[in-house]
Amino acid sequence: MQVAIVKYNAGNSTSVAHALRRLGIEPVLTDDADTLRNADKIIFPGQGEAASAMRYLRQRGLDTLLAGLTQPFLGICLGLQLMCTHTEEGDTPCLNLVPVQVRRFPPGDKVPHMGWNTLDSVSGPLFEGIPAGTYFYFVHSYYAERNAAHTTAQCTYQVPFSAALHRDNFHAVQFHPEKSSEAGERLLHNFLRL
């Protein structure tokens, strides 16, 4: 199986690549259009700032390329936020692969939301064998709003938000499965079986 990790300026690919290797997959890190189109699975990690990441993707035409992909696609952390319609971070229009808005956590509790939190609810094939109440590792200052049609997992930190989103072949998780112990490994395993 060919698993491609999208190479761009905000991809923290090392941990994801290690997690895939622990599952017996040697991923390829690439921004090449043909390699991405021909891969069996796409992983779109992300860490950093949304506006500069979107600018980078647009300048290289990766925005339209990613939107046109049809194989199973998994966005992680900032990857999830970039797949939404718009983020308050830098007032940035995003890829609009899932019709959801990304907002800044309200001041009050500590931001970023950092550490292990439980999922309130889960659904869909990505969460097979992963019950509600399972802990995942989160680090983020912005969150995707909930959407009745597209939210497949919910988490709560100050406000309830989308811990996972899904539309067609596009899947996304706000937490870091590559850093979430056995539960994260199970989720990646589930994704690789889609």
Partner: peptide, 8 residues
């Protein structure tokens, strides 16, 4: 360490 560790 990064190759084996599945927590941050």
């Amino acid at each position: 360490i990064a190759a084996v560790l599945n927590i941050p």
